[in-house]
């Protein structure tokens, strides 16, 4: 009979207001600084790469060899304290080379699953457009589902599975360009580009930074990244910004290949992650403008470089509400 009285008192609602705990300003700053130290003069790209990782997306880098694609993957893995693997995609690559294979164990008369390189946190898929479509799609399915199925058995991938795929500019010989539908699965498409003269000078002077990568101290761990991702989800997206995002999506559909609703969702996620990296608890229209080319470029034209150009033109046409 001793029924507890229903508690009437309600705490003043704090939802939406100051929803973020203290911004990890110091840690974020350190991470960004370290990444930039390795990849000199490319803070733009490293920031976007980090945002992509926090938004649980995958990264596509399109550039000529030798500008630092691998270095970026290496630096990310080392800084964030994640293990990373590299797969060189070639024209004779088989799906099993990526996801793993079941081998018959003659000792216990059973098939055993030998996990492929995909079972890692950061996977650098180098020159993905050199592999035939079959091998490409094996990777892309793994990216989307975050699991692989071999011989009817599903194997879950790592929680923070993050793919950095690089591809050569499409006009090179012996390339299988990724179809639009596959490109849609990459959250961000980046160019790294040649360093500017001053940076290049410094690079030439101080030599390759790759040697330093091995000695880098991890600044974060997987748990902390998970926490940051949760914080990203709470970043406030006001209705004028949503209006703006919607206007951008609409405008993209009137000319050429439009952006899918999945792209729209990804844009929202990426904006939040980017705002978080800027240590803000709300998204500004400037954030949207900043990340939009990286998100939309490869989706609209199939190529990162021309896509970026196209996306920037689109930004100039869509008015801020």
């Amino acid at each position: 009979m001793n029924q507890p009285a229903p508690t009437r008192s309600r705490q003043p609602s704090s939802q939406g207001v100051a929803s973020l705990e203290r911004m990890p300003a110091a840690e974020l700053g350190e991470v960004l600084a370290q990444l930039e130290r390795i990849l000199m003069g490319k803070s733009e790209q490293t920031t976007l790469a980090l945002a992509c990782l926090l938004a649980r997306g995958h990264l596509l880098i399109e550039d000529v060899p030798g500008v630092g694609k691998t270095t970026l993957a290496h630096a990310l893995g080392a800084t964030l304290g994640l293990d990373w693997t590299r797969v060189q995609f070639t024209s004779d690559l088989l799906p099993a080379d990526v996801v793993g294979v079941s081998i018959f164990n003659s000792h216990n008369q059973q098939f055993e699953f030998k996990p492929g390189p995909v079972f890692t946190s950061i996977l650098l898929a180098d020159e993905i457009n050199r592999a035939p479509p079959k091998a490409q799609s094996a990777l892309l399915e793994a990216m989307e589902e975050r699991q692989v199925t071999v011989d009817g058995v599903s194997h879950a991938l790592a929680e923070d599975f993050f793919v950095i795929a690089t591809q050569n500019p499409g006009d090179q010989l012996g390339a299988f360009p990724l179809p639009e539908s596959q490109l849609d699965r990459f959250l961000v498409g980046l160019e790294i580009g040649y360093p500017d003269p001053a940076t290049e000078r410094a690079l030439l002077e101080h030599g390759d930074m790759r040697a330093d990568v091995a000695s880098l101290e991890p600044l974060l761990d997987a748990r902390q990244i998970q926490r940051w991702r949760k914080q990203c989800d709470k970043v406030h997206l006001s209705s004028p910004v949503l209006d703006y995002i919607q206007a951008l999506l609409l405008a993209s559909r009137t000319a050429g290949t439009g952006l899918s609703p999945r792209a729209g969702l990804s844009l929202v996620k990426l904006c939040r992650a980017f705002a978080f990296i800027q240590q803000r608890d709300h998204v500004l229209p400037d954030d949207v403008r900043h990340v939009f080319p990286a998100l939309a470029g490869h989706r609209m034209t199939g190529h990162v470089r021309s896509g970026h150009q196209h996306a920037r033109e689109l930004l100039q046409q869509v008015s801020m509400p």
Binding site: V17, H236, S238, V241, H282, L284
Partner: peptide, 10 residues
């Protein structure tokens, strides 16, 4: 303005 328009405020 950034705070007023784009942020969730009490």
């Amino acid at each position: 303005f950034a705070n007023l328009r784009f942020r969730a405020l009490s």
